[in-house]
Amino acid sequence: MHRVLTEKDRDLVLSYVAAEPEMSLFIAGDIETMGMEGQLCVWGLAKAASADKDLGAVILRYGDNFVVYSRDGDFDDAEAAVLIDRSMGGDAPGDVNGRADLVARLAPFFPANRLEPCTMASLREVNRDAVGPVPQGVELGLLKAEEVDAWLGLQGTIDEFSLHLDDASIYAERRARKLDELGAGLPCVVARDDRGQIVSTASVGAASSQGAMVIAVATDKAWRGRGLATAVVAELCDVCLRGGLEFMSLFFENPAAARIYRRLGFCDVGPYAMLRPSAR
């Protein structure tokens, strides 16, 4: 059994997901930023193994992407999959994110999406000893609205982020989304070379009153191996923590990224996963 959750359920949902603030950051951040209605759709699933029908899981949809969270995994995974499928009108969903054990249960229902495991990590203080000086002529700063096209230009050179950026409608959507994020106060740190060109970047993709998620870490291929990824992530974390947040989170897949983040002070929280469209 499930129902659509509305503004009157806000405290219930935020209290429920607060048990694991890093794993549920996308849910808490989106609700705090956009509310429970309008751009978001939020569902609550009742516990499957209990007669009291307390909240057993929360699913949030934003665009074609979904986040699932459950404290104890007591929900009907088939019901959750049908809910996602029907909300998409039978089309395959975009990303389905969440704690790895929950996402793995949904994977068999979405064969067009591939399961990508990763690790969620969290930081509460930056280890500045791990951050070396930036190369001569490079300066760190916050992304300006007039630089969004240049920022997208860098993203377009990175395989992980470049998908369909040559499509005008997708480019326009990503451009508008980035401007909205900047307007909402979600910071993006960039490194500029001595010509003012953006050569490295790290962004906040979601933020709650407690923490923020680091995403879209990218460095121009000609500038890699010079400590810029470490520098922009450290600066982004410092900006957010100085602003009053308690923690920063991110998820990573490859060992090289893990070494960078752990040196900075990130500690593993647990397995996370994404069901991603196979075309991505």
Rank of each mutant, 00 (worst) to 15 (best):
V103F: 12
S50V: 12
G183D: 04
L123N: 01
A51M: 15
C267H: 14
F251W: 05
C41A: 15
F75E: 01
G196K: 02
L228Q: 01
A150D: 13
D220A: 08
S249W: 09
A257F: 00
K8Y: 14
A191V: 01
P117W: 03
R276P: 12
D95F: 15
A80C: 04
H2S: 11
S87L: 13
L83D: 02
R226N: 09
K8I: 10
P187F: 06
M34A: 08
A216V: 08
D91S: 05
S162N: 14
Y16L: 01
K178F: 05
Y16H: 01
A176K: 12
G132M: 08
P133W: 06
A176E: 09
R124T: 08
E181Y: 10
A191R: 00
A218L: 07
E20D: 14
P93G: 10
A184Y: 07
E146F: 12
R242V: 07
D95G: 10
G35T: 09
Q155L: 14
D180V: 12
A234V: 07
A229E: 02
Y261F: 07
A19F: 14
G137V: 10
P187L: 12
G90K: 06
V217C: 01
A206T: 08
E116F: 07
V233H: 05
A256N: 01
V148E: 10
L14F: 12
D95E: 09
